[in-house]
């Protein structure tokens, strides 16, 4: 007989500045995963503390997030207002780095087109377990990178 028992779906935490990822993932992958959205580092930490997740999916660009909520690692000594767009543009990396520093070891998928293999290698090595997902990749491929439904 088939196993009709409803098993809990793996929960995936999606960090983005809007809701496009979450909404899309839920609509298209919602039968297999449960997606939860976080829009800043603080909210991410809170959700991770409150519940368990199977993986993280991070957007790279957080342009719509208020400047005050952006992580700033003092990328350079002369950082100023002129750096704000650049700070938002790479926020996904900063956020993951902060999580790793905080001890979060969940597998992470970073949706980004770096066009720079050296940079990818550096970041993957530093922020492991991390996979870079380019924009050309379909959702089915992205889902394949996530832990399976049987994953606890």
């Amino acid at each position: 007989m088939p196993d009709d028992t409803i098993r809990p779906r793996p929960r995936i935490l999606v960090c983005e500045d809007g809701d496009e990822y979450t909404e899309r993932f839920t609509r298209l992958l919602g039968r297999r995963y449960e997606f939860t959205r976080a829009t800043s580092f603080g909210e991410t930490r809170a959700l991770l503390a409150a519940r368990s997740f199977a993986a993280l999916i991070l957007d790279l660009d957080f342009r719509r997030t208020p400047r005050a909520l952006l992580l700033d690692e003092q990328l350079h000594e002369g950082a100023n207002e002129d750096d704000a767009p650049r700070l938002a543009a790479d926020q996904g990396v900063l956020l993951l780095r902060a999580l790793r520093v905080a001890g979060v070891r969940l597998p992470a998928l970073l949706c980004a087109d770096f066009d720079d293999p050296a940079r990818e290698r550096l970041l993957c090595a530093e922020l492991d377990p991390l996979q870079i997902v380019p924009s050309s990749e379909g959702l089915s491929e992205l889902a394949a990178r996530l832990p399976g439904p049987n994953h606890s």
């Binding site: 990328l75 720079d116 050296a118 940079r119 530093e126």
Partner: peptide
């Protein structure tokens, strides 16, 4: 140089 986000 590379910045904090690994960018060249």
């Amino acid at each position: 140089e590379r910045d904090a986000a690994g960018r060249r």
